[in-house]
């Protein structure tokens, strides 16, 4: 009964969330393009499904993903758990939270490597680069970027450094890389940051950060709790550009080797 009540209130709120996009698409179709909508029944059914899907998804988030993220943060930072594994008494140090970093890393890597939109982008990049950028290479580069990003983000929450130090430093690295990376990869690398953080990963990671900030002594959820997603969308930009640079450098070296070995041959013949 409680569940039905929750579904109902979420349903009422969600109608407002879907109205703008429905209004915009139908408005443009009817008033600017001035053609009737093809397959109107199908499109309308689609909108109803979107609405119900959103409602179920949001209620499910409240019931499962948010609590799991916070629970994991609580259990992994619980003093009993830490003291069982690490011999420290008193205020825990940043190195006592190794399992937190590992958990963050694994969540980042495992959710990204299977991300369907990333697979599509990787295939496209492979095609455009003429095979220089491998499909698996790019997927691993992005997954590593996200994993390192989230792990570093949890480290930041534990030690409590201001988030903008990390992000600004990251920006500087990205800008420097931009001038050295192959031109074709740049827009793709920039996009890979935003694309990879999927609808399921975002709430879980957000809850993990908030849970950590609640349980690590001396942190406040308001100031330290957010920011993990920012890390997860910044680091793939760097790792993708680094991967492309590596691929280009390898290609150049192989070419240089070939040409130098052929000139060597030429000189010995003379």
């Amino acid at each position: 009964m409680l569940l039905l009540q929750e579904l109902y209130t979420t349903f009422l709120q969600t109608i407002y969330d879907v109205l703008p996009i429905a209004g915009i698409l139908f408005g443009f179709q009817l008033f600017v393009i001035r053609k009737p909508i093809p397959n109107i029944k199908r499109v309308a059914t689609g909108f109803v499904l979107v609405l119900f899907g959103l409602v179920f998804f949001l209620v499910g988030l409240e019931k499962a993903l948010f609590p799991i993220g916070k629970l994991m943060a609580n259990q992994l930072t619980a003093p009993e758990f830490i003291h069982d594994n690490v011999e420290t008494i008193g205020v825990p140090e940043w190195s006592d939270y190794m399992w937190v970093y590992l958990f963050a890393f694994l969540i980042g890597a495992s959710t990204t490597i299977a991300e369907p939109s990333l697979i599509a982008v990787a295939l496209k990049a492979n095609e455009v680069s003429g095979g220089a950028i491998g499909v698996w290479g790019l997927r691993i580069a992005v997954a590593l970027g996200v994993a390192v990003g989230i792990a570093l983000g949890t480290y930041r929450i534990v030690v409590g450094y201001p988030i903008h130090w990390f992000i600004i430093a990251g920006y500087i690295v990205v800008i420097i890389q931009t001038y050295f990376a192959p031109k074709l990869i740049i827009p793709l690398a920039y996009d890979s940051g935003g694309v990879t953080t999927s609808t399921v990963t975002v709430p879980l990671v957000a809850a993990l950060g908030l849970g950590l900030a609640e349980t690590v002594p001396g942190r406040s959820p308001l100031i330290d709790g957010f920011g993990l997603i920012a890390f997860a969308s910044l680091f793939p930009i760097m790792s993708v550009m680094a991967y492309a640079q590596l691929a280009e450098w390898k290609g150049k070296r192989a070419m240089a080797k070939e040409s130098s070995s052929s000139t060597n041959q030429g000189s010995t013949e003379q």
């Binding site: 569940l3 899907g53 959103l54 179920f56 998804f57 499910g60 409240e62 019931k63 499962a64």
Partner: peptide
């Protein structure tokens, strides 16, 4: 129950 709702919701959402 929550995980099931997430899967069901995401599915309907994407089909829609």
């Amino acid at each position: 129950v929550g995980l099931f709702l997430v899967v069901l919701g995401l599915t309907l959402f994407i089909i829609g």
